[in-house]
Design a protein around this nucleic acid. Structure first.
Lengths: 173, 173
DNA sequence: AAGTGACATGTAAAAATCTACATGTCAATC
DNA sequence: GATTGACATGTAGATTTTTACATGTCACTT
């Protein structure tokens, strides 16, 4: 039910349509936390409305339906946040690829690691800029908040550093 | 098809039965990279054998079937490793929970973050010990290699540091 | 000899997810 | 007035994953 809770989380900030939620998934959650597409989001919103976790707050132009979280929805989100399951399920193609690096020879590993380090640098630069801009504007601006941006920044720095370390280890082994 | 490639990766190290692969998923991949259960692994191995990516290398006691990767399997794994898709799909319940932290009030956020920091410390200690033991034995010993252990260690340190930073930010905001 | 626990493999049905198709609106431009 | 592109929502069918059930072996202990 993680999709459901991700949607409740996005809606707890402010009401939104399925279309907007799809965009916000792309901007804020997709990369690090949870991937979902509109073909999954629309039906899930319908089910959540049936379960009274959200309501249709407004219907606008072009068939647009704006959903708002209900008190029951907030309660369910809080319950889920405070009641961590024993095991967290992870499925991460990028990390899997990293783990399987040891199946490659040194040349192939370099072919994977060098572009990875480059793309980390680009992400880090973009995140730093986003954080600086948001801090200057002081009042948000980051897609899903300062906390998430900081998490992303630190994660990419760690990935870059690890990849550099791995590269060195592979070079002179 | 990530499950398939994860299995090829594990088998590229040495032949194994479905049962052993399930254990190795639990030890090495489950936590950070890919979650899979035996009810998915067994049928997938059968399909992979039909596709000639693996073969049944031996049949042992208790119906045990040992699978070995074929040349075609190695080629497919290498192809997948060297041909990164434009987008990596991530689904990570733990990170999602972190991202939704901003939906909680300060008290509830503390309730989530403090145990998180504790569990990071425990993971870090366990990984450090595992790495030290393996380095002393010098010849492997780590479930999926030194690279992965280092990745896990750095990731948990980053998570712990971020969580501490977030906690401080929440406390005095 | 019975019981226990790790070993070992499977399947069926339900739920979640992906891919591809499908439809239509509205605003701006040509 | 036609075209284009962003806006907006959906469904059908296939694939992947989960949950729950199902079966049996072997080694060791009581």
């Amino acid at each position: 039910m993680s999709l459901r809770h991700a949607l409740l989380g996005l809606l707890s900030d402010e009401p939104a349509s399925g279309y907007e939620l799809t965009r916000r998934f792309e901007k804020a959650l997709q990369r690090y936390a949870w991937h979902a597409q509109h073909s999954q989001i629309y039906p899930e919103l319908t089910k959540m409305a049936a379960d009274s976790l959200v309501t249709v707050a407004a219907e606008g132009a072009r068939g647009r339906r704006t959903y708002a979280i209900t008190d029951a929805g907030r309660a369910e989100l809080r319950r889920w946040m405070l009641d961590p399951p024993e095991t967290f399920v992870v499925r991460d193609e990028g990390t899997l690829r990293l783990f399987l690096l040891s199946t490659l020879d040194a040349d192939d590993a370099r072919t994977v690691l060098v572009p990875l380090i480059d793309s980390c640098e680009r992400e880090i630069a973009a995140l730093r800029k986003g954080i600086a801009d948001a801090d200057a504007a002081s009042g948000g601006g980051l897609p899903f908040g300062r906390l998430v941006a900081e998490y992303g920044l630190r994660s990419f720095e760690t990935l870059r550093d690890w990849a550099s370390w791995a590269l060195e280890r592979i070079e002179h082994n």
